[in-house]
């Protein structure tokens, strides 16, 4: 099984006619994802390589019955796109847009919570979600994933998500689902949401978690793991050598004082029984050992 999405999930791409939307939307379709439509205001009635384009998400949902949306639009339009999808009844939204103002993100998140509690947002600023062999919604290169499980991956960093997939696939260890939650300050979906889903998924036997400096999501995840997870978890936290007080790219990756340092996060995870590793390669190796021990 996979979490959140599967081979039946029907997806519309908001921004399909743009450069990135077209490239990644069609690449998702080639992977096997059910891309049933695209949305670009003013371009309704046209198509992108056979994928019909609509003016609004509501029209696209009416015509195609889509349940998920892939938002790939510039930062200043992204939050409106997310809210439009939610209002049209989309229940799972993946937003890969990087560079959305934090104030907009906080407002959009709280609007979803208040007005559309049935909608799950993944991202923004995330690589998306891939359930190998079933569906790929986002910008992950499908060929680095391996179908068949038994590992679930959840990661805050986009490129480290790829690195994690790569480390496992190269060793012949497959994944049930790989979720990139994104490194922005207000992620729609957090570690705990994914850990909970992986714990409940019978096909997922172990979880790899990739964190990074800043915020307290890893510490909260550690608390959850300690109290609720029965499946083994391997973790890596990026940024051990990051100088304190500097902002390293992600709005999320800010260290202040001792809170949010890689060291503090690793200690919290270790105390919760997680196998904490020093780099992505070691995380892959430890996970391979665990998976081999399962069978």
């Amino acid at each position: 099984m996979s979490i959140f999405v599967d081979e039946r999930t029907t997806v519309v791409v908001q921004g399909l006619t743009g450069g990135q939307g077209r490239f990644h939307g069609l690449r998702n379709r080639d992977y096997g994802t059910k891309i049933v439509g695209g949305i670009t205001p003013g371009k309704g009635g046209t198509d992108v390589e056979g994928v019909p384009v609509f003016d609004t998400v509501a029209e696209a949902v009416d015509a195609t019955g889509a349940v998920a949306s892939f938002v790939v639009v510039p930062p200043r339009f992204a939050c409106d796109a997310i809210l439009e999808a939610a209002a049209a009844g989309i229940s799972f939204i993946v937003c890969i847009t990087e560079g959305i103002p934090a104030q907009d993100e906080a407002s959009a998140y709280n609007r979803l919570v208040r007005e559309f509690p049935g909608t799950r947002l993944l991202g923004p600023n995330c690589p998306g979600i891939i359930s190998p062999g079933k569906t790929n919604i986002g910008i992950t290169s499908g060929d680095i994933a391996l179908a068949g499980g038994p590992v679930g991956i959840v990661s805050r960093s986009g490129t480290l998500t790829y690195q994690a997939l790569h480390e496992l696939s190269q060793q012949g260890v497959g994944q049930t689902t790989c979720v990139g939650i994104g490194g922005d300050p207000v992620p729609g979906t957090n570690f705990i949401d994914c850990l909970e889903a992986f714990e409940a998924d019978p096909d997922t036997k172990a979880v790899m978690m990739i964190g990074e400096i800043g915020g307290s999501e890893e510490e909260r995840a550690a608390e959850y793991i300690g109290a609720h997870m029965t499946k083994p978890v391997v973790a890596y936290v990026a940024g051990v050598t990051a100088p304190p007080g500097r902002k390293m790219g992600h709005a999320g990756a800010i260290i202040s004082g001792s809170q949010g340092t890689a060291q503090a996060k690793m200690e919290a995870l270790d105390a919760a029984g997680v196998v904490v590793t020093a780099n992505p390669t070691e995380a892959g190796e430890k996970m391979v050992e665990i998976v081999r021990g399962l069978s």
Partner: peptide
């Protein structure tokens, strides 16, 4: 590197193999 996470991780790994960024 591309991506803040991978860039930070690259710093970590360079450090672990005895170098400095």
């Amino acid at each position: 590197a591309n991506g803040a996470g991978l860039a930070m991780s690259t710093l970590d790994v360079v450090n672990q193999v005895g170098g400095s960024a």
